[in-house]
Amino acid sequence: MKKVYPKEEVCMACRLCEVHCLAAHSLSQDLIRAYKLESPRPRALVQVTEKGPVSLALPCRHCREPMCVYGCFAGALTRDEATGVVSLDPDKCVGCWTCLAVCPYGAIYRDPARGVAAKCDLCAGRPQPACVANCPNEALIFAESARG
């Protein structure tokens, strides 16, 4: 399956992936409205990790053995066997944060405004995830493997 892979060597931690992810998961689909008018403000589902010159954005790996799905007693996290996509149903999520604790990549986040977990959904319906489409340095690729 196609996933979002980071290229650490060219990620410059500008965090435009986060900005565009937030807008892509907003009601208005508009950067300025999403940030300024929507309440609660949507949450970015990708996050740049940075230490000195090392930085990368690592969204959900959509693992074949998804620890988050195994750990979710509310049944909010599921893996689609056909597509391989791991999805989160916020209506079922109870905010116990078990998924955050078990995710080996730290790729699931808290959405404090809604009290539920938040994770990458690969921007279903778009030709490319918003983070990949808007990365100015091609540090994120949407591909079958990390080598593209």
Partner: peptide, 18 residues
């Protein structure tokens, strides 16, 4: 712009492919 520098956090700004 990551050009006239040797700071590794800045030199990353040029993706040699691009």
């Amino acid at each position: 712009w990551g050009i006239a520098t040797t700071n590794l956090a800045l030199t990353k700004r040029i993706n040699p492919d691009i």
